[in-house]
Write a protein that binds this DNA or RNA. Structure first.
Lengths: 134, 134
DNA sequence: TACAAATTTAGAATAATTCTAAATAATTTC
DNA sequence: GAAATTATTTAGAATTATTCTAAATTTGTA
């Protein structure tokens, strides 16, 4: 199992404290945090951290394909270190965002005459636990 | 074929000039415009039009399920009067956004334990015409 | 140690959207 | 049909997320 530091280095990212902590934070969570949440959760650990750094690092990790942007509602941007082809489900009731994997790649359903770089899909609705609560 | 006015009325939306023109504009285009583009393109026809109205009307039409938000890149929000299950392809080169329909509903690929309200998917890459230009 | 390059930082600037309260238009009531 | 009520639109201010900018700090190298 590669360490997060190794992953960064192997992808040509010099592993500064900030980069490593932001990447590790994303790797460790499945909550699809916003840039603000990331900043807020890490600022105790890295008191000097600035919001600009969070945005810079996220942009860098996205360019290196180590992180994906998740755009599932309104104009809030969320981030995800899961980069395999997958989608997201957002529950309209509790607001939670979870990963969704398909039985087969979406790719196969496309008659594409274009070059595909990234596929994402978004589903909204009501999650299991909110359904049973009703 | 129903008129746009009829569609609005049947969905409980009183068809003011602004609402009708914004809805008709979206129905007539496949370009997935942003709120700003809609505002800009309609302000000659409706000189009094305000940006707030564009946002208000879009929000209303979305609530009535007559329009969908399209979130395909960064934090730009686009709008689409095509509400059948479909996705979007954005070309990284020319920036154009086009509709994508699947051979079968994505729904079938999900082992969903949740109630699905809306499904959208986004693909980025390079479109045919940009591929051949290279 | 000294120099150069890379990275981070705070705060200002920008852009999209929402909020607010007043103005206008449409509808209802008498 | 006038007055009152309700719905809709409007301009501009406020808010929010993100980007820009230029200085400060850190890291790597001669």
């Amino acid at each position: 199992m590669k360490t997060n530091q190794e992953i960064l280095v192997q992808n040509g990212v010099s592993p500064s404290i900030q980069r490593l902590k932001i990447f590790s934070y994303l790797k460790a969570t499945k909550s699809h945090p916003t840039a603000y949440t990331i900043f807020n959760d890490l600022k105790d650990e890295i008191p000097s951290l600035s919001k600009t750094t969070v945005y810079n690092v996220l942009k860098l990790l996205i360019a290196k394909r180590l992180v994906q942007e998740v755009r599932i509602e309104g104009n809030e941007l969320r981030y995800d270190a899961e980069v395999r082809e997958h989608g997201h489900f957002k529950c309209d009731v509790c607001g939670e965002v979870s990963d969704v994997f398909l039985n087969q790649p979406l790719n196969l359903l496309l008659n594409h005459s274009y070059e595909v770089k990234e596929i994402q899909f978004n589903i909204t609705g009501v999650c299991k636990s909110c359904l049973t609560k009703k």
